[in-house]
Structure formats: structure tokens, C-alpha cells
Amino acid sequence: MKLLAATAVAALALACCSVVRAYQRTAYFGFDDSEQHQAQKAEFVWSRLAYTSRSGGNGYGWGWGRAAWSRDYPKADRQLLVAMKRLTRIEGRPYEQVVDLDSDAIFEYPWIYAVQVQAWTFSDAEAKRLRDYLNKGGFLMVDDFHGTQDWEDFMEGMRQVLPDRPVEDLQSGDEIFHVLYDMDDRIQVPGEHYIRTHRTYEKDGFTPKWRAIRDDKGRIMVAICHNMHLGDAWEWADDPEYPEKFAAQAFRVGLNYIVYGMTH
């Protein structure tokens, strides 16, 4: 019995290692992962916001509820950085940067990206730090949350950060859709599940919502991509089964939002 248990544990450990290794292989994009290169100095650094999710914990990891902020991380980030390097004159670091609200280090990165924001929670100090960040000129892009309940949960945290700022629907003529690519016609960008389900929505998020919170001068501080999953589109752009039209729009949106954040 003991031998069987030991064999089972060993088999499980081997399976886990294989999964991790398999993931690492798919996450290799031709970059040199050395620390030296990860610390490369550049004008633009893709910064992913790590937060404490409702179920607790903000460490790296996988699985629902454990580390919601790290969805699609880091492949999505790196895929988009490849596109940014090829398609723009932005001097970007090829490696992402994880930032959190526990220290002032976030102020070194005026552009941050957050996902699964229906799960985010803030202490008062964290909410103030994010509010200060946005009021000083920082830019926040949120993505990958779906349906009515997710919206309410997202807004619960958002109201803690910017209690008096209204959320508005972006119009096609808004500058953020023209700063690099003209994007008057936009479609709902589904996650990787589209390959299996052919559904473009999740939960009751049938319609993509392009929304924003602006500052006193009308500049977008928080760009909200609700009912869509751009991160997945970046991550799975190299999958032959994932439709190109979704990936192409997702890249354009991402690059437009970066350029907008660097110009407004």
C-alpha cells in the first residue's frame, strides 16, 4: 500500500513537473530570459498589476481564485511586446514587469494593465496609491471580465479608488481608437474558449463594452475593456485555430491604448 502511495505521489509530481516544463516551453518566445535582459532599461515597460483577489492571495500561480491578476501571464504580455516592437517606434523592454500597490514602485511605470478585475480588492492604502497614480498621469487598462456580476464587482473596487468619477461609453470617434490604428469598427474579442465553443462571450457579457474613466480635462485615465478577453487573443495569436481577426483587433487595441497612454 505504501509503495502504491509513494508511486502515486511520484507520478503526480512527475506530471506536475511535465506540465510546468510544457508551459515553460510554450512560454519561450525567442527572448533571452536571463536576469540581465529582464532588467534591460527601456522607455516603455509593460506593467501588469498584481492585486489581492477576493479569494485572497496575490502570488503567482494558476487556478481560479488564486492569482486572478496573472491570467495569461506572461505569454500574453510578451506576445504584445513583440508586436509593439515590430509595429511601432516605441522602445520597449521585451519583458513584462509585475507591479503591485504595496509600494511606490508603481510610480516608475506610468502605464499598467490589469485583468480579471472583478476579483480585485484594495485596502485603503492601496486604493489611495492607485488613485494618486491615476491623478498624477498614470494610465490603467483593464481587461478580461465578463457579464453583469463581474461589472459590479469591478466597480466596487473602482469606486474605492475613484469614488466620484463617472464611467462612460467610448464612441468610435474617440481619440483612443485613432491614435495609431483607426478602429471605428470593432468586434467582440473572445478568449481561447472560442476554439471549442465558438462563443464570443462569457457569462452574460454578450456585448463588448468599450468604456473609460476620464480626468478633469477629458483624458482617459482608466480604459475599460469589458466583455472581451484581449489578453487571451494576444496569448493565443500563434494558435492556428484561434481566428486571426480576433487576434489582429486585440493587438491593434493594445497598441492604440499604449500609444494613447503615452500621448495624453
Binding site: 522607455e43 516603455f44 509595429l87 511601432t88 517606434r89 516605441i90 522602445e91 506610468p110 498621469g137 491614435v179 495609431l180 480635462k217 483624458r219 499604449i258 500609444v259 497612454g261 503615452m262 500621448t263 495624453h264
Partner: peptide
């Protein structure tokens, strides 16, 4: 090239009603 300095100089000028910043930025 897109740079943070560009953004923040523009924002500073936005607060000055006597200045109008006209910019041309090589994005690609």
C-alpha cells in the same frame, strides 16, 4: 518616438491657457 516626457510635457502645457501645443509624433 513615443516617450513619457512627450506625454507629461503636453500635460503641463494643457494647464496653461496661453499655450497651445501642436505636436507631430512618429508612432511608427
Amino acid at each position: 518616438e513615443p516617450r513619457w516626457e512627450f506625454k507629461f510635457i503636453r500635460r503641463a502645457s494643457d494647464d496653461d491657457p496661453q499655450l497651445q501645443m501642436v505636436s507631430m509624433l512618429r508612432t511608427t
